[in-house]
């Protein structure tokens, strides 16, 4: 276990110094801050739009960070040969992959935390209170981002950083519109082959919209606790499965 944490710490130090991390965080903070300029609306509507926009920013910002950092960690180490002294130590390739993922996730969580803090300050400025569901909504947004980071880390074990970035980004988009769009494609497809292909993609992609509780936060809708637990278990299972696939492949890859 200690091998995982050492690699995670190194990954965190490396990622937190990357320009893309600072740029994305500042960009999202700027967008969250600029949401206070929506004074043309009435206060009630303004708060709803602010919550919607800020939650979307946190989600996008977190996902963008997860993709940018997760897709480049392992390939950069392999290309620059900084991986050699590390895997010459008594750590398995699985520990290395999981350590890189955890380091990336912690870095992304720091970015999400910064955006959440800015959001919370804004909300308190308007409402003079915090929504009881804010913590849960942010937690599940972080879980969604964790799933994206796992996909990015796994794909980066197979391909170059550029391809990993593009594929993860496409998987992220497709995972968000999966039930509605791809589900519709399956229903409308005529041939068995296309139906099989769409079904394969459908069941392989994560159901990212499940983690989105933005509307519940904005409109104070009640979400059943059983559903929250199901989504949490689903997210953790998906992350574990994806990392197992990535680690299994990387264990036999020549570096």
């Amino acid at each position: 276990m200690s091998g995982i944490w050492i690699i995670a710490k190194m990954s965190l130090l490396e990622n937190s110094r990357k320009q893309v991390f600072h740029v994305l965080c500042l960009l999202m903070l700027a967008v969250i801050g600029s949401s206070t300029l929506l004074t043309i609306f009435t206060e009630g509507v303004q708060i709803k739009i602010l919550k919607d926009l800020c939650m979307t920013c946190i989600l996008f910002g977190g996902a963008a960070l997860a993709i940018a950092l997760g897709a480049t960690g392992i390939p950069n180490d392999v290309e620059s040969r900084t991986i050699h002294p590390l895997i010459a130590r008594p750590i398995t390739r699985t520990q290395y992959v999981v350590g890189k993922y955890i380091g990336t996730l912690i870095t992304v969580a720091l970015g999400v935390a910064a955006m959440t803090a800015a959001f919370a300050v804004l909300i308190y400025g308007y409402q003079h209170s915090f929504d009881s569901f804010l913590g849960i909504a942010i937690l599940f947004t972080l879980l969604e981002v964790a799933v994206v980071a796992a996909i990015a880390t796994t794909i980066s074990a197979f391909v170059s950083p550029a391809i990993a970035t593009v594929v993860t980004f496409m998987a992220y988009l497709a995972g968000t519109i999966k039930i509605g769009y791809i589900g519709g494609l399956i229903e409308r497809s005529q041939s068995g082959v296309s139906k099989a292909i769409y079904s394969l993609i459908y069941h392989a992609l994560p159901n990212l919209e499940s983690f989105n509780f933005k509307t519940s936060l904005v409109h104070h809708d009640v979400v059943p606790a059983s559903y929250l637990w199901q989504v949490a278990i689903y997210g953790l299972c998906y992350i574990a499965f994806v990392l197992v696939v990535g680690a299994s492949y990387f264990s036999s890859r020549e570096v």
Partner: peptide
Amino acid sequence: PAGVLAHGAEELGHHWDVPAYRAEMRLQI
């Protein structure tokens, strides 16, 4: 993707009430 997702989110607001979501999560697990 903001346009894509914002649009999608409008349509799928209460996904916890959509049986397909629960079924798909169970099947994937």
